[in-house]
Every structure is written in structure tokens, then in C-alpha cells.
Measured scan of single mutants.
Amino acid sequence: TTLTVNTQTYTFTSEEEAREFARRYGAKTIRKTNGTWEVHG
């Protein structure tokens, strides 16, 4: 199964959650914005 996250942004309140998600789905960018963490595919 392949998950494609081209134009979607996922927002997390903790860096740990964001990094775990990025690691699991191979997202390329993690960015902190206004106190939340954004993961970009």
C-alpha cells in the first residue's frame, strides 16, 4: 500500500507525533508554524 501526500498538510501539536508520522509515511518536510508542527508530503 502506498500513501501519496503531494499537496496535503498534516498538523500536529507535538514534534514527536509529527516526526513519527513523517517517518511512517515518508513525508519530506517537517515545519513548526505558530506553535504547531506541519508535515508536508
Rank of each mutant, 00 (worst) to 15 (best):
T1G: 14
T1Y: 06
T1E: 13
T2I: 11
T2Y: 05
T2M: 11
T2G: 13
L3R: 05
L3G: 14
T4V: 13
T4L: 11
T4A: 13
V5A: 12
V5T: 13
V5G: 13
V5M: 10
V5W: 08
V5P: 14
N6D: 12
T7G: 07
T7R: 05
T7V: 11
Q8F: 12
Q8T: 12
Q8G: 10
T9D: 03
T9K: 09
T9M: 10
T9W: 14
Y10I: 06
T11K: 08
T11Q: 07
T11F: 12
T11G: 03
T11V: 13
F12M: 00
T13L: 10
T13K: 09
T13Q: 10
S14G: 02
S14F: 03
S14A: 03
E15L: 11
E16Y: 08
E17V: 04
E17K: 05
A18R: 00
R19E: 10
R19I: 11
R19T: 07
E20D: 09
E20I: 06
E20N: 07
F21D: 00
F21S: 01
A22W: 03
A22I: 03
A22K: 01
R23F: 06
R23M: 07
R23N: 07
R23G: 05
R23L: 08
R23S: 07
R23K: 11
R24Y: 05
R24G: 03
R24C: 06
R24W: 06
Y25G: 02
Y25L: 11
Y25E: 03
G26D: 04
A27Q: 06
A27F: 15
K28N: 09
K28V: 15
K28F: 10
T29L: 15
T29F: 14
T29C: 15
T29A: 15
T29I: 15
T29G: 05
T29K: 06
I30Y: 06
I30A: 02
I30D: 02
I30V: 10
R31T: 11
R31Q: 11
R31P: 05
K32N: 11
K32T: 09
K32S: 07
K32G: 08
K32H: 11
K32Y: 15
T33W: 08
T33F: 09
T33E: 13
N34K: 04
N34I: 02
N34W: 01
N34H: 03
G35V: 02
G35M: 03
T36R: 09
T36Q: 11
T36Y: 13
T36K: 11
W37R: 00
W37E: 00
E38F: 06
E38H: 04
E38L: 08
E38S: 03
E38W: 04
V39Y: 01
V39G: 01
H40A: 11
H40M: 14
G41F: 15
G41W: 15
G41Y: 14
G41K: 10
G41M: 15
